[in-house]
């Protein structure tokens, strides 16, 4: 899923030694790609195909024969009620992505460009540290912070400010999810900003560009692949999250992830419909990856 700026190597480029026997030529790639390839096929591609097959069986319950017969389950998903749920998930995911980008870019920029280099690893480590705890615990921590008599309102009260009612609303979901996924964004942006050609920044300043112009015309285009990759990772991860909406979102927090959960583990399970929803989600994610790969690359072409 890497967003590369380099033109792909020509497949016809001649090998360094044209005399290697065919077997040896294949041995390397097979040994290197084999284990991961097998892992992908057995644990990702095959299960996805199985999900797709089940999604074609209407009203299937465990114990029934899997005989694909039509798209009924997909038509069910176009019910306005479920469309609403899918849109809510998209709203949470896009909002989280935007927040992570807004919050993550300055941090990554500071760590990569401005902070003393001997601190960098420590600072990055600090940012990844929250990932060492379970996301469930982090969601509960936000409950403790945001509840009416929680940490946030205690602090606000002690400096004479009015309290905030954030919990049980979409705002709390966005706060919790941005916190969850910010480290990914920072890590990816950091690795992208680290490679920033600083001579270009200096040249831009020498030629009379304001810092803002330099930022928009030099820094952003050069880090576009990092921005695209980071946003994509955050978007996909947050699309599947249901812990934060469930614990922080109040009464109207149904997400598509929870809807799928209910089709398998709820009181009226419908594995076929659940599989159809999963397939739709996989499609949405795949299409957004394809779009970002295409346009993310084009923007960076000179």
């Amino acid at each position: 899923m890497s967003v590369s700026t380099k033109p792909p190597l020509s497949p016809n480029s001649p090998p360094d030694s044209g005399k290697t026997p065919l077997g040896q030529q294949w041995l390397g790639p097979v040994a290197l790609l084999g284990p991961a390839g097998l892992w992908l096929v057995v644990l990702l591609v095959l299960p996805t195909l199985v999900i797709f097959e089940i999604s074609l069986v209407p009203d299937i319950v465990p114990g029934m024969k899997v005989i694909p017969s039509g798209l009924d389950n997909y038509l069910l998903a176009f019910d306005p009620l479920y469309i609403k749920v899918i849109f809510r998930s998209l709203f949470f995911a896009l909002g989280t992505t935007a927040l992570c980008l807004l919050l993550g870019f300055p941090v990554a920029y500071w760590i990569a460009i401005l902070a003393p280099s001997r601190w960098r690893n420590l600072l990055l480590m600090g940012f990844v540290l929250p990932l060492w705890t379970s996301s469930l615990l982090r969601a509960y921590a936000w409950v403790t912070i945001l509840r009416p008599t929680g940490v946030l309102n205690t602090v606000l009260g002690s400096i004479g400010l009015p309290g905030l009612e954030l919990i049980d609303r979409p705002s709390a979901v966005l706060i919790g999810m941005s916190y969850d996924f910010l480290p990914y964004m920072v890590l990816i942006l950091y690795s992208s900003l680290e490679k920033l050609d600083r001579q270009l920044l200096e040249a831009s300043a020498d030629l009379g560009a304001t810092p803002l112009e330099t930022f928009w015309k030099i820094t952003v285009p050069q880090t576009a692949p990092g921005i695209a990759a980071g946003s994509l990772l955050v978007f996909i991860s947050s699309l599947g999250d249901f812990v934060d909406p469930e614990l922080l979102g109040g009464t109207s927090s149904g997400t598509v992830a929870r809807l799928i959960y209910n089709q398998f583990l709820g009181q009226s399970p419908n594995w076929g419909f659940g599989s159809a929803l999963s397939t739709i989600l996989i499609l949405v994610v795949s299409v957004s990856i394809a779009l970002l790969l295409k346009y993310g690359d084009r923007d960076t072409q000179p």
Binding site: L81, Y82, V85, S252, G254, G266, Q267, S268
Partner: peptide
């Protein structure tokens, strides 16, 4: 039974998603 439970489920989804 499946038919009645899905009525409950549907109203529930409407309630928690509206």
């Amino acid at each position: 039974g499946e038919n009645v439970t899905s009525i409950y489920d549907r109203y529930w989804t409407r309630l928690t998603s509206g």
